[in-house]
Simulated scan of single mutants.
Amino acid sequence: MTGRLSRRAALRGGAGALLGLGSLAVLPAFGTPDRKQDPATCFADDLSEEQRKLVISNWPAYIDEDGKKYVSTLTQFERDFGITVDYTADVNDNLEFFAKVVNQLGACQPSKRDMFMLTDWMAARMIQVGWLQPLDKSRVPNLDANLIDSLKGVGWDPERNYSAPWQSGLSGIAYNKEKVKEVRSFEELLSRPDLKGRISLLTEMRDTMGLTLLSQGADPANFTDAEWDNAIERLRKARGDGQIRAFTGNEYIQDLAAGNIVACEAWSGDVAAAEDPNLVFVTPEEGQMIWSDNMLIPNLATHQANAEDWINYYYEPEVAAKLAAYVWYICPVKGAQEAMEKVDPSLVDNPLIFPTEESLATTHTFMALEEFQIRAYEGDFADVTGG
């Protein structure tokens, strides 16, 4: 259970704390010309054939582990491919990890990694500035064949030429059914009198503002400045009216279970991991946000073919099912639900691991932002949240 919580705790707690310092200086500065690269000229010779190794950075507790009788997916990959994996859980926050690699990638120097996993918005920025190598699609046929439809065609990588989702999650609503009647929409969360002062929203701008934009009739994947202004003012009003108790990372789960809050904006993985029958995750009537952490191959990676073998392996339904049974996030791989019958039948119909087609049809992504937009929008959001 601790493992399933720690990945999002690290992401949200870290990012929220950084913005809470009240300074936008922590935001990534990508756009200076000297940091942009051309992946076609900033690459290394691939040593995969002679060096059967792979260096990966990922989030904590985001992969299954060997047990007494259980062979993890990583160990099985090493056995099947004869590749030794140097796997490190050193991605504690998108911004913190960015600081580890910015100088190297921005100067076309090795990051000493063959792959790392980062969230959509950071992946989008790295693609825009040319810091990632394109995938050899002939080596990852399972990615194109088995990626679930809702994660195809993202605006920042429409053909998935640079990114492969590792795991995904939903941002919606949760409520404590012992404390309050059903909450059906994000607008209810922002306005219902019986919820006043008893809700929390998330410190992650793209989730909270994505749902706020939806509540105002705008598309989070394609909105105007005027629509942004309208949404930020709606959030500002809710804050000023005393509707919102707090903006938090995923510590909201403890408050929700204890009744300190009765409803909140929530991540599907947190509600699943809590395994509390009184906590209910709801798809807001307006729709919900979907996010992914993505497998990415940086410039000057020296074992790209081995990394592509890893991607193709994890897009085998049987492998994806084993991983999903451990981490309890949305599995991005078609066929994994059927494969789960042999792994853990109790999880086959878990909607927080395998959402229905109807549920996935309600999902939205947040549009890729230019650097000037990131700073302006994060500034507006921090002004409302008190960051």
Rank of each mutant, 00 (worst) to 15 (best):
Q373T: 09
S48K: 12
V333P: 14
D207S: 15
F381Y: 05
R125Q: 11
P220Y: 08
A174G: 07
Y87P: 12
P141G: 10
D46N: 11
S185M: 00
M117D: 04
Y377E: 15
L360G: 08
D46R: 14
A361G: 08
E251Y: 04
Q167M: 13
A272P: 11
Q167N: 13
P317G: 00
P332T: 05
I199Q: 01
I374V: 14
L95A: 09
I83L: 00
L5N: 02
M117C: 12
I311N: 03
N299Y: 03
D64R: 03
Y313S: 05
L323F: 07
A263H: 09
V180F: 10
A246Y: 01
G153L: 06
S138A: 13
R12P: 04
A321F: 01
S111I: 14
D241W: 10
E204C: 05
I173V: 09
N146T: 00
W156F: 11
A263P: 04
K334D: 15
D349N: 15
D86M: 01
F116V: 08
G153F: 05
Q288H: 12
V101I: 13
V262S: 15
S215E: 03
A368H: 10
L18H: 00
A258I: 09
Y315V: 00
L132W: 14
Y252Q: 02
G169V: 01
L300Y: 12
V154N: 08
F186P: 04
